[in-house]
């Protein structure tokens, strides 16, 4: 492999990795607070992407407004999911919550399937996103530059909110011990809703940029992306937002480099992502940025 091709592959890796990272951050947020692997996260992302599709493709609204609509829809879905499906199970064993999350994910897929239709839709992509920048025969797509910037700024905002604001403090406190914090007069359900608002918004943003890069939408796109983002979050150390970022990039790179060196075995691409995850967990069971839940949060 020559150096130019290699650099192109690194660029490709960043493009895939930043997408996984963006979605993985939402996963890790919810896990950090509720210890719940929210398997419906990929579906909330899908709902966001479909809302944007409706706004742009059907009602003809501009991208900016479509993003707002998508985020609102995702927040509504996320918060309702919490209120209806997760809240009654707060004191139930973790496994019940996990199974509920899987159920919610199927429910959302089928709801969209029934109301919007299950056929593949083409996501309307503004011509701007089709332009490419070529430097020394290395090709950069617009989403490739925008997505990492958005991922990093969202991460910065998130870390700021978590560590510098009163609500952030409440979220972190809640992550330690819900019961005690409630006794201190904090409205825990309100704070948990806030967590779902943040997580769902991140999912919606992820969904829109996924659709802009790979503009084919079906109600089932959330499954694989959700699993990959989950793997990324675990790889980085679930519960740690910066870990999710690192995990996302590593997973993206691993996949791209595997296909880059062995395109004839590209069918094993998804398997590689998960084999890689297993290998890392064998060496470091808590993930790369694994946090000690007795001492700190996020």
């Amino acid at each position: 492999m020559d150096i130019l091709n290699f650099i192109q592959q690194v660029v490709n890796g960043i493009s895939v990795g930043s997408m996984y990272a963006l979605i993985a951050i939402g996963y890790t947020m919810v896990y950090g607070v509720l210890r719940l692997i929210n398997f419906a996260h990929g579906e909330i992302m899908m709902v966001g992407a479909f809302a944007a599709f409706m706004a742009m493709g059907v009602w003809g609204l501009p991208l900016f407004i479509a993003i707002i609509i998508a985020i609102s829809f995702a927040i509504l879905t996320g918060v309702l999911t919490d209120k209806i499906a997760y809240k009654p199970l707060r004191s139930a064993p973790r496994i019940s919550l996990l199974i509920t999350a899987i159920g919610v994910s199927f429910f959302l897929q089928n709801t969209i399937n029934v109301f919007v239709g299950g056929t593949a839709r083409s996501f309307p992509v503004a011509p701007f996103f089709d332009k490419v920048i070529t430097i020394n025969s290395i090709v950069f797509t617009p989403t490739l530059i925008i997505v990492p910037v958005i991922t990093l700024s969202l991460l910065a905002i998130l870390l700021f909110v978590l560590h510098k604001t009163k609500y952030g403090m409440a979220i972190r406190a809640l992550a330690f011990d819900i019961k005690t914090v409630s006794l201190m007069g904090v409205n825990s359900n309100q704070i948990i809703s806030l967590v779902f608002v943040i997580g769902s918004s991140l999912a919606a943003v992820g969904g829109i940029f996924w659709a802009l890069s790979y503009p084919i939408l079906t109600p089932y796109i959330g499954i694989m992306i959700g699993l990959k983002a989950f793997a990324a979050a675990v790889l980085g150390g679930i519960g740690s937002v910066s870990g999710a970022l690192i995990g996302g990039f590593i997973l993206g790179f691993a996949e791209v480099m595997f296909v880059a060196f062995y395109p004839e075995a590209g069918g094993y691409r998804d398997a590689i992502a998960f084999i890689f995850l297993i290998l890392v967990l064998l060496v470091k069971p808590t993930g790369i940025m694994g946090i000690n839940f007795e001492k700190s949060r996020f």
Binding site: N5, Q8, Q9, N12, G13, S15, V16, W210, S213, Y214, I216, Y220, M224, E255, V256, M257, V259, A260, P263, E264, A265, G266, G267, Y268, R269, D270
Partner: peptide, 18 residues
């Protein structure tokens, strides 16, 4: 060369660069 993909894959840039 014979290359492989999986139905449902979205990103093919690594393969196409080759």
């Amino acid at each position: 060369k014979v290359m492989q993909i999986n139905q449902g894959d979205s990103d093919f840039k690594a393969m196409l660069s080759n």
